[in-house]
């Protein structure tokens, strides 16, 4: 479980999908990093990610880590967004994991990611949900 302070530091990327665009080589990094893995650049500008994409691959977790009991089965996916950026996210709104498929169009929606019991802080971010009908 994160600390509230760590979650707070990550609000720009978690709440607003702010990625870091390398000013040297234009590579878009999500989550943002301090050094560009492509060119070694150290200066970035914020770039808001598009919210539409498709599932590249996925797995379904049946024995979840603590705090995810209500959300099991817990599908995790590698999603490629419309601008080519790939990110690892949970897939939301899945009652039956048999309906998941590679290539499935998804959009990123604001959701609860986890919560520190009944009394602790709630961590928000984005999940991928099936797009279209």
């Amino acid at each position: 479980m994160f600390s509230p302070a760590r979650a707070w530091r990550e609000y720009p990327q978690r709440y607003r999908l702010e990625a870091a665009k390398c000013t040297e080589c234009s590579k878009i990094l999500y989550p943002p990093r301090l050094v560009c893995p492509a060119c070694g650049g150290r200066t970035f500008t914020p770039e808001i990610l598009p919210r539409e994409g498709k599932v590249v691959t996925f797995t379904v977790i049946r024995v979840p880590p603590a705090g995810f009991t209500e959300q099991t089965p817990l599908p995790l996916a590698l999603v490629e967004l419309a601008n080519g950026v790939r990110l690892m996210v949970q897939i939301g709104d899945v009652e039956n994991p048999e309906t998941l498929e590679i290539g499935m169009p998804v959009r990123l929606e604001f959701r609860r990611i986890s919560w520190d019991g009944e009394a602790g802080v709630i961590f928000y971010g984005h999940k991928a949900v099936r797009a279209g009908s």
Partner: peptide, 9 residues
């Protein structure tokens, strides 16, 4: 609402 949906989301 799902377990991950609330008034804020």
């Amino acid at each position: 609402p799902g377990a991950d949906e609330d008034t804020v989301t």
